[in-house]
Design a protein around this nucleic acid. Structure first.
Lengths: 113, 113
DNA sequence: TCAAATACATAATATTCTTATGTATCTTTG
DNA sequence: CAAAGATACATAAGAATATTATGTATTTGA
């Protein structure tokens, strides 16, 4: 199963931040592969979604970047800034809370109010 | 806490379908209030999001409607069609699965691959 | 009586994704 | 050794789905 695309909406930024928190330093393509691997292909981040998201995180000062040459090809590493680390905790907590709320909503068997 | 707005994206349709599955017959305003109540004000569905969603469900044949007059004011009830019931199960299962995957992603402590 | 709540709806705008396209290098395999 | 596939970046057009604003109207409660 691959999830219908709308589910990812609103969670991509949090996923990226969390991966950076766990892995210190990652580059874009690596992030797509890591997510694909960890989710057994259920979540496949497209490049058209990822790169703009990474650029937005950089503009917001949540990550810093450093480019490295691997042969002749450039590779752009992203690292969380101190503010990025705080933001990650907030976003992860919020998403965890949201999922608990959703779990409750989806399990309710109440027939009347 | 009220969740940042992007989290709701992609889950609204599922929430509405699930509520209709549990309560047989509901009208729009009632749905907004029920969600607000069940989530302790954490999720507040806006009318601009809800009504187009309900209309889309109707166009897709997932719900049927019947209007009723309460005094001089109209109230439009929504009920799941047979296809809507099937669709609800699919969507709820998919979202539950997605949340498990996200839970795993957010909990991982792996430092390297 | 007048504000707040109930009840519907739509339009303009914003956000955030998909899909398509572009460029270029590196690696594997027949 | 050529060609396909993987690696690696990026942006633009379009779609989907929400917010915010606006509109209409009735009912309720302080």
């Amino acid at each position: 199963m691959i999830y219908s695309s709308e589910l990812l909406k609103g969670t991509l930024k949090t996923i990226v931040l969390k991966l950076l928190a766990d892995n210190k330093k990652m580059y874009g393509y690596e992030i797509t592969q890591k997510v694909k691997e960890l989710t057994l292909d259920k979540i496949q981040i497209t490049e058209g979604a990822l790169y703009p998201t990474l650029h937005a995180l950089e503009n917001d000062g949540l990550v810093t970047t450093e480019s490295e040459f691997i042969g002749k090809r450039v590779r752009k590493y992203y690292t969380l800034s101190p503010r990025g680390k705080l933001k990650t905790k907030e976003k992860v907590n919020e998403l965890a809370d949201f999922m608990n709320t959703m779990k409750f909503l989806l399990d309710i068997k109440t027939k009347t109010s």
